[in-house]
């Protein structure tokens, strides 16, 4: 590996990580603001103009709070839990194509950290790892509520991973590749997958909500029953990590949804732009506009729908989404087969 490529990749990793963390930080602000607006309130508006410095104030508060570790907890795992949650959340961003090429100061940046030909499996793999942070933290707290939260999280994750995987299989069959770069490249212009896979998108979106532990699937941390669920015993920056990981997951999920179903960095009329520099930046901006839209939808749903009951959650996952995903997969397979025979 030559050093220029290495430096390029390192820069890209740092930039993407920085953007991820920044967006996760400001997601907390956006969440509070959107929640307030949907409820006819103002939201945070004291720290800076429009409360724009609120996340920094929150972070400061988190840092300076007393860090409690329960005496009866498994100390090692208790500390590891938030770390694992954060790590897995950050790792997922590596396989997402953030654009095609970007020309900065005469260099050509390829906007994907790792172009692995199984990108989508990589993302599923790391998303499914994410549950360990919650499970370990919940169990190590040595608290019944935390354990309940951990157990709910794990069973929920496993259940919804199946439907998620099945809905992705339909996309994979249609596009004929597992590489996210190619999936994005195939959706040139407005030829987005959503037109072919509307049902798959609904299933995937529902599962993404469940995988991120977002309302209405936030049973692992539901305050009314479990106090704080898996993070009941956590305080200070460890709690901050858990909350942060949730927002990072939300960001990555939005990016994956945008890439799989909404054309990633593609936008209608992209062929008419001559300058490749401008095109690169526009693609980058398009992807982020889509991501922000989905983050908004995530929050919008959270502040609209009430939480599911646990049996309803399992019912929805196993008896509705999985059969639907299988039907969707079979229909897609039939269409793909017919098309390949006729042409």
């Amino acid at each position: 590996m030559d050093s220029a490529l290495l430096i390029e990749k390192i820069v890209l990793v740092l930039v993407i990580l920085g953007i991820t963390l920044l967006i996760a930080t400001y997601s907390t602000y956006a969440e509070r603001k959107i929640a307030a607006f949907l409820q006819d309130r103002q939201g945070p508006n004291r720290a800076g103009i429009f409360g724009i410095l609120q996340p920094i104030a929150d972070a400061g508060k988190m840092f300076f709070k007393e860090d409690l570790i329960p005496a009866a907890s498994e100390k090692w795992l208790f500390i590891m839990g938030p770390g694992i949650a954060m790590f897995t959340a950050c790792m997922t961003g590596a396989a997402i194509p953030w654009g095609t090429e970007l020309h900065v100061f005469g260099y050509t940046l390829h906007m994907q950290i790792a172009d692995i030909d199984i990108g989508i499996l990589y993302i599923i793999g790391f998303v499914s790892m994410g549950v360990y942070g919650i499970m370990i933290g919940g169990w190590a707290s040595n608290n019944k509520y935390s354990l309940y939260g951990a157990i709910r999280a794990s069973s929920q994750m496993i259940s919804y991973e199946l439907a998620m995987g099945l809905s992705i299989i339909a996309v994979v069959m249609m596009t004929g590749t597992l590489s996210l770069k190619e999936i994005a490249a195939q959706q040139h212009g407005i030829n987005w997958n959503i037109w072919y896979q509307p049902l798959g998108f609904i299933i995937f979106f529902t599962c993404a909500l469940a995988e991120c532990n977002r309302a209405p699937f936030d049973l692992p941390e539901c305050d009314s029953e479990l106090i704080g669920g898996y993070h009941t015993e956590y305080s200070s920056m460890k709690l901050g990590f858990y909350l942060f990981a949730e927002y990072i997951n939300m960001f990555i999920s939005s990016a994956v949804i945008a890439t799989l179903y909404f054309g990633g960095y593609n936008f209608p009329g992209m062929d008419f732009i001559e300058s490749s520099t401008l095109l690169g930046w526009l693609q980058f901006a398009t992807l982020f506009a889509k991501i922000f839209f989905f983050i908004f939808v995530f929050m919008w749903i959270r502040w609209t729908l009430p939480r599911f009951r646990y049996d309803q959650l399992m019912h929805l996952g196993w008896k509705s989404l999985i059969p639907l995903a299988i039907v969707n997969m079979l229909i897609t397979a039939a269409v793909v087969l017919l098309k390949s025979n006729s042409f």
């Binding site: 607006f37 006819d40 919008w300 502040w303």
Partner: peptide, 13 residues
Amino acid sequence: GMAITLSHFFKKK
């Protein structure tokens, strides 16, 4: 339901 909450988004606070 989402339409209802969205309508509140633009209402006077």
